[in-house]
């Protein structure tokens, strides 16, 4: 196993940031830790990168214990913290060279690994990092985290605040990196990115809700989901909220995802109800659960 986490708990004063977390990541796996801000993702990252000590539990990265062998871990992992953490007053190339040097390597030696990512920002190599756009900063940060050829790569919310285009590109890069046999442990608050991981852990309020492949997690959704729409979305949300057979009703894009409390629920019942409430262009169709549906159901 590349990463083993066993019953880790961590508190800050009264606040329990992590509550009895366990998970395992296989070598070469792209593992996603999915959850909103404040779920405890960053705390788990810091524990695994030896920056924090857990209150309880044990963990190992690449076979090294996070407490005893912290020095070995620091030699073997790449880490990209949540905030952009490079030197803004150094140029692109100086940043990269600096991180290569402190890990005792050179840009040349490991250029193959980062070429794919670095070529996109190389034209700006003499620009100060502080003056790069969001997407470029992120590529530079990833290049710096990779420059020493780490065996495990920790990426804490690399795509937060980044636009969909750059996000898509970033995930494509991760997929290619994975082929180089690097274990990638990544966190994100964007549920749609979960689909791109081999395995995910849903986390909220310091607790893990579920760990599995994205497919299995979607398949585990316990109810039938219907996507509903009518000409008046706001009224639809309100009416579904007061409908006595509603288990959940959440907006999903142009539809509302609806589940019923009844196991033998028939869509026609809902259509009748909505018609009675003067809705037009009513559409009720069965649909598949997404990761987000599962997350909301589990964290309800």
């Amino acid at each position: 196993m590349s990463i083993i986490v066993k019953n880790i708990s961590k508190s800050y004063g009264q606040v329990k940031a992590l509550d009895d977390i366990s998970l395992e990541v296989r070598p070469g796996e792209l593992f996603g830790l999915i959850g909103p801000d404040g779920a405890g993702k960053t705390t788990l990252f810091r524990i695994l990168t030896t920056l924090l000590l857990p209150n309880e539990g044990t963990a190992s990265v690449n076979g090294f214990d996070i407490v005893k062998d912290y020095k070995s871990i620091r030699n073997n992992v790449g880490y990209m913290p949540g905030r952009f953490s490079l030197y803004q007053d150094l140029t692109v190339e100086e940043n990269l060279r600096f991180f290569a040097t402190i890990f005792g390597t050179t840009i040349k030696e490991n250029y193959d690994l980062i070429r794919d990512i670095y070529v996109q920002i190389e034209p700006f190599k003499n620009r100060r990092a502080g003056r790069l756009s969001g997407g470029m900063k992120q590529k530079l940060a990833l290049s710096c985290a990779l420059i020493h050829k780490p065996k495990v790569l920790f990426l804490d919310e690399p795509t937060t605040g980044v636009d969909p285009v750059s996000r898509k590109e970033f995930w494509e890069m991760l997929k290619r990196l994975q082929k180089q046999n690097i274990t990638i442990f990544v966190s994100t608050p964007y549920m749609d990115e979960a689909e791109l991981c081999d395995k995910i852990a849903l986390i909220t309020d310091g607790k893990i809700l579920q760990i599995n492949t994205p497919e299995a997690i979607k398949a585990s959704f316990p109810k039938k989901i219907y996507k509903v729409r009518s000409s008046e979305t706001f009224k639809l949300i309100q009416d579904l909220g007061t409908y006595n057979k509603t288990h959940s009703a959440y907006p999903f894009g142009e539809y509302i995802h609806f589940t019923s409390t009844q196991s033998d629920f028939q869509p026609s019942e809902l259509i009748d109800y909505l018609k009675a409430n003067k809705h037009n262009q009513i559409e009720v169709l069965e649909t598949n659960a997404t990761i987000e549906d599962t997350f909301m159901e589990l964290s309800k």
Partner: peptide, 24 residues
Amino acid sequence: DEPTGGVDPITRRQFWEMIYREAH
């Protein structure tokens, strides 16, 4: 300006309900 960045999915939807209510 990006009011829901990083917010959990349920609260995010509640937030949008608030937006709808005001628009209404």
